[in-house]
Simulated assay, not measured.
Amino acid sequence: MGKLTNDATKLLEAISYQLIVTLEYCHNLIEGQALWLEVYGDVTVGGKAQIEVKNFVDDLTDGHINFWNTLKNWTSSKFKQEKYCELILLTTQAYGATAELRHWNQLTVGDRLALLDNVLKHSEARTAASGKKESKVVQIQQFVMAEERREILLDVIGKVRIVSDEPSLVVRAEEAKSRYGKGLDPSKRGDYFEALLGYLIEPCISKDGWKITYDDFDIKIATLFARYCKNSRKFPVVDLTSLKGLVDESAYADRLFVKKLHEIKYAEKIPAAILEHMVAVQTISSEFKRFTVEKLDVDSYKNDQLKRHISLRSGAIKQCRRLSKEYWCEESQIFFDNRCGEPVDGMPAFDGTTVDFRNGIWHMLADDEDEEGNERLHWRLW
């Protein structure tokens, strides 16, 4: 499939790359610090650093527009360079073979100014020789080197550090998952990583604009670790959205737990029952594998649920028999609703067992045939 004329892939890659860099700097925050995303620049660490992030393939040469445009932004009257101890150009670009910029981080302020001045002179000479109009990059160079900005420029270039030849988007993402995924269940590192990136781009609902504080980030990490760490006590959450698309009533028409809802003329509850059944099955077959949950633990939970249900149903049957038979179906529906609205009995070793899982366990039990002298789970009160 060919790309559209105005394909935005590169823009999305650049945004993704910036978010991963932002995530790295969030982990570097110390108590009391805050970080801003796309407010004062690409990434800003309050009182410490301004980071411009560039995800480019071509070489970083002395006259490259990425470098000079970054200097232009930092020497602009709107930018308060005095607020930062360091100005960082972080780029995936490697230095060109003849680039003097490769020595930038080791040069004095005077040597840096001389390098910039030399680049401008060569650019203007080439433009004059060609007879063409000054290119955009030459105009940017002239803006940066203008005499009226010299004092600001000297302050800026004294703080500039170039971080070049950084990993590609894919490599950086994988390294971030590994670096910040310590202590997590390996199968859930991707989910944890995506949740953190989602937190960074979350609209200004739960955060103060695009500001991320040490305390907020600390709480977010603690919350996600509780869910995704190895042997977490947080009950595993199944993606209901993806499961809802798989609910097919016709495929479950012959299942006993579905027939038992038809038995009390409560067909409208069947789609939800199927979804809950799917949640319980997936949790047991997939999610519990990440934890020290043995079959015995699940069987014990199911057995406890069945015993309680049989006892409550027995009492409800006695109440129902006092009414005419014409009300038995409706009373059975009320019994079903009341049961589904009860507080959830927690699974041992977990906090926050979900209603969907608990109800799904009931539907699994309702899917079992009665045995001689051993009645299974029913909703009918007769």
Rank of each mutant, 00 (worst) to 15 (best):
T70M: 03
L87S: 10
Q81I: 09
W68L: 03
S77M: 02
K83N: 12
K83D: 14
N73E: 10
D62Y: 01
S76H: 14
N73S: 11
L87A: 13
T70D: 05
T70P: 01
G63H: 10
W74N: 03
T91I: 06
W68D: 02
E82P: 03
S76T: 13
T91L: 07
L60Y: 05
G63C: 00
C85H: 15
K78V: 07
D59A: 14
K80M: 11
T91P: 02
W68A: 04
Q81S: 15
L87D: 09
Q81P: 07
Q81G: 13
F79K: 09
T91Q: 06
D59K: 11
I88C: 10
T61W: 00
S77H: 06
D58W: 08
I88H: 05
N66F: 02
E82H: 09
E86C: 11
N73K: 13
G63V: 00
T61S: 10
K80P: 00
C85T: 11
L60R: 02
L89H: 01
T91W: 10
Y84M: 05
H64W: 00
F67P: 07
I88V: 15
W74H: 06
K72V: 01
K80G: 04
G63D: 12
L90H: 12
N69G: 04
T91Y: 05
T61N: 14
G63N: 13
L71P: 03
F67T: 02
K78C: 08
I65D: 15
K72D: 12
N66Y: 01
L60I: 04
I88Y: 09
S76W: 00
E86Q: 15
T75M: 01
S77Q: 13
Y84N: 02
L90N: 01
W68P: 04
S77D: 11
L90W: 07
K83Q: 11
L60K: 02
T61Q: 12
K72E: 10
K78N: 14
S76G: 15
I88K: 14
L60F: 06
S76C: 08
L90E: 03
K72W: 04
K83S: 09
F67R: 05
K80N: 09
W74M: 06
L89T: 08
C85R: 14
S76Y: 00
C85I: 07
H64M: 00
W68M: 05
Y84A: 03
T70G: 03
K80I: 11
L87W: 15
F67S: 04
Y84S: 09
L71H: 06
W68I: 05
F67G: 08
T75V: 15
W74V: 08
T91S: 12
T70C: 03
L89C: 12
D58Q: 10
Q81C: 14
N69R: 13
H64C: 05
W74K: 03
K78Y: 14
I65M: 06
D59P: 15
S77N: 02
L87T: 11
Q81Y: 15
S77C: 04
L90C: 01
D58P: 01
H64Q: 09
F79E: 09
K80D: 14
N69T: 05
F67C: 06
L89I: 15
L89V: 14
N73M: 10
H64I: 03
L90A: 07
L71M: 13
